[in-house]
Design a protein around this nucleic acid. Structure first.
Lengths: 233, 233
DNA sequence: CGAACTGTTGAGAGGCTTCAAGCCTAGTGG
DNA sequence: CCACTAGGCTTGAAGCCTCTCAACAGTTCG
């Protein structure tokens, strides 16, 4: 279900704002722009699928995607959500393994594809970029390790509280403290690693305890300190 | 409880067998040997502790260590076990963060400390090494992601079966199929992310089901296919 | 030998999952 | 414009898995 609609406007495909590229010089940025291919993808589109070979990585300039693995009997485990400014697929690309996750659009998105050779060229010729890449990988590795400890030791309640706060940090809230990403209960469950019904029950508990307010998929934070304590972070 | 006993013999501190250094030339290996500091550490020694700043990374030439994080109320979550030929501490070092894990010796070990500047020098001047580093990090990141899916979706029984097989792959078995690493029940539990009692009960179940044989801390594999099926891998 | 640690077993409690049924909401087609 | 349908959401009940607590046996080591 790959859905390309139109070639996005230049403003939508500007890569200069990406922290990821902060160590590239003008020539290199030029090459990047020359080699990139940008497209708009509608909600539901799959950018790449678990088990396939990648030809490059993607810069997300707009929209929201979920990155997930398919576990036992097809249950999806969401690894993370990505938004404009994020980079995806470089991990499997660099280790030259098959993709170990699937990336699916959940809010119409614009993505720029950068071919593998271009990335390799930058890494090989720009030590600062290469060093930056290493640092990014190391940081992600720490986050993954942190998450392992969390998920192994915390209860579902604690993990849900943590996930809500994590989403708040990544996607921010509006002036009324309403979380700026709308997920289904199932997606929340797949992130926490639990059953949909459990998420529903816990969310209503949080609501009764005046920690959050619910209106459909909109979540409004009422008492962040208590949530933070509950998540034990 | 840092325990240095004696300067180990040259054979014990030979780094040329490390896959990690396979892309270094003779000059670079020479520098490595010049800059390294090797020591023997007794069981129980802590190489580095969570939250401290690292001055370099370590090559393990002999022995076994556990790498763990301290979670809620002091419960340790074992991230992995390392043995001769493995490298530790480079993740936090490269991201220039404080150590996020603790490394403790569980079988007398010889470790060589390589200062940070030496690593940085190699990375900066040897693209092949730097690229190799990136690939290692990417692979570890995939493993971490895999583990997250596992731990989030599998039951304790499945995870224990998986951990046993994982240990078998890392530490091998002798001619009688006896696992060549002896862990306490608590360490197994801290790896699986469960209570010690649960591990004990499940191990006896495995024993009753003729999947393994137990003699103290020695574990002998009897039926690996069934274990594998049980771990759903 | 005693202390400290490790391993084992039982009982009870509680968290979480699963199954089942029904409600709500949004989108579709007549 | 409205009924209909599908998918998401909610709630209840039952039961299992796992944890915790507690008591005790076995082991190791000074």
């Amino acid at each position: 279900m790959r859905n390309s609609l139109y070639a996005p406007t230049p403003e939508e495909t500007n890569l200069s704002g990406f922290k990821f590229f902060k160590h590239l010089n003008d020539t290199e940025i030029g090459k990047l722009n020359y080699d990139k291919t940008c497209q708009l993808y509608k909600k539901g589109s799959v950018i790449y699928r678990e088990g396939t070979r990648l030809t490059g990585f993607y810069c997300v300039t707009r929209g929201i995607l979920k990155i997930y693995k398919t576990g036992i009997d097809g249950k999806e485990q969401i690894i993370r959500f990505v938004k404009g400014g994020d980079i995806i697929a470089f991990r499997s690309l660099l280790s030259q393994e098959l993709a170990c996750t699937t990336a699916k659009v959940i809010d119409d998105a614009v993505l720029c594809h950068i071919p593998y050779p271009t990335l390799l060229f930058m890494l090989q010729n720009n030590w600062k970029f290469s060093h930056w890449m290493i640092q990014i990988l190391c940081r992600e590795l720490r986050e993954a390790n942190d998450y392992i400890t969390d998920i192994a030791q915390k209860t579902v309640r604690e993990r849900l509280a943590e996930v809500l706060l994590l989403l708040k940090d990544s996607f921010d809230v509006d002036e009324n403290n309403v979380l700026q990403i709308a997920l289904t209960r199932e997606e929340l469950a797949n992130m926490v690693g639990t059953a949909t019904e459990s998420v529903i029950r816990l969310l209503s508990e949080f609501k009764q305890d005046k920690l959050i307010e619910l209106k459909g998929r909109k979540i409004r934070f009422l008492d962040i300190p208590t949530l933070r304590r509950m998540a034990s972070i």
